Simulated scan of single mutants.
Amino acid sequence: MIRLVAVLLALLPAPLVAGDAVTSGTGAMLRGLDKVSGQTEDFRVATGGTAEIYGLDVALGDCRYPVENPTGDAFAYLTIWERGQRQAIFDGWMIASSPALSALDHSRYDVWVIRCMTP
């Protein structure tokens, strides 16, 4: 897990890694995709809250964004599990500008971060 975080930090845009201040949002805007029906839907999740996105439960630990650019480069800590199951199928940081970098691997559903909600 530490290696994954180190790789993610190394791949973040240079200004963010170079010391730009980041802050936490009040929640996150997530997008869910049902790969079978092709349906997409946007969901708001408060920090510390859980949302039902199709057949998945998604918990948001934190959503952070650059102070100077609240609409850009959001990254959120998500824990995702199939409804009714106990074991998480995803647990980590997901980056809005690079969703494939740390993506949910599920046969039917996809979830990615759109942006953080700001106060």
Results as ranks from 00 to 15, higher is better:
Leu4Ala: 07
Leu11Ser: 05
Leu11Ile: 00
Leu12Ile: 06
Leu12Tyr: 13
Pro13Lys: 07
Ala14Ile: 08
Gly19Glu: 03
Asp20Glu: 14
Asp20Ile: 00
Val22Tyr: 02
Val22Ile: 06
Thr26Val: 10
Ala28Phe: 02
Ala28Ser: 02
Arg31Ser: 03
Leu33Pro: 01
Lys35Glu: 15
Val36Met: 02
Ser37Asn: 10
Gln39Ser: 08
Thr40Met: 05
Glu41Phe: 02
Glu41Arg: 09
Asp42Gln: 15
Arg44Cys: 03
Arg44Val: 08
Val45Leu: 08
Ala46Asn: 10
Thr47Leu: 07
Thr50Phe: 07
Ala51Trp: 02
Ala51Leu: 05
Glu52Gly: 12
Glu52Asp: 15
Ile53Tyr: 09
Tyr54Thr: 01
Leu56Trp: 13
Ala59Thr: 07
Ala59Val: 01
Ala59Lys: 13
Leu60Lys: 05
Asp62Lys: 13
Arg64Gln: 15
Arg64Gly: 08
Arg64Tyr: 11
Tyr65Trp: 07
Tyr65Cys: 02
Gly72Leu: 11
Gly72Ser: 14
Ala74Lys: 06
Phe75Met: 06
Ala76Ile: 00
Leu78Cys: 07
Thr79Gly: 01
Ile80Cys: 03
Trp81Gly: 01
Arg83Leu: 14
Arg83Glu: 14
Gly84Asn: 06
Gly84Cys: 01
Ala88Met: 05
Phe90Cys: 03
Phe90Met: 08
Trp93Ser: 00
Trp93His: 01
Ile95Trp: 14
Ala96Met: 09
Ser97Val: 03
Ser97Arg: 13
Ser98Ala: 10
Pro99Phe: 13
Ala103Gly: 04
Leu104Trp: 13
Asp105Phe: 08
Asp105Ser: 09
His106Phe: 06
Arg108Thr: 14
Arg108His: 02
Tyr109Arg: 06
Asp110Gln: 11
Val111Ala: 07
Trp112Tyr: 09
Val113Asp: 12
Ile114Cys: 15
Pro119Lys: 04
Pro119Ser: 14
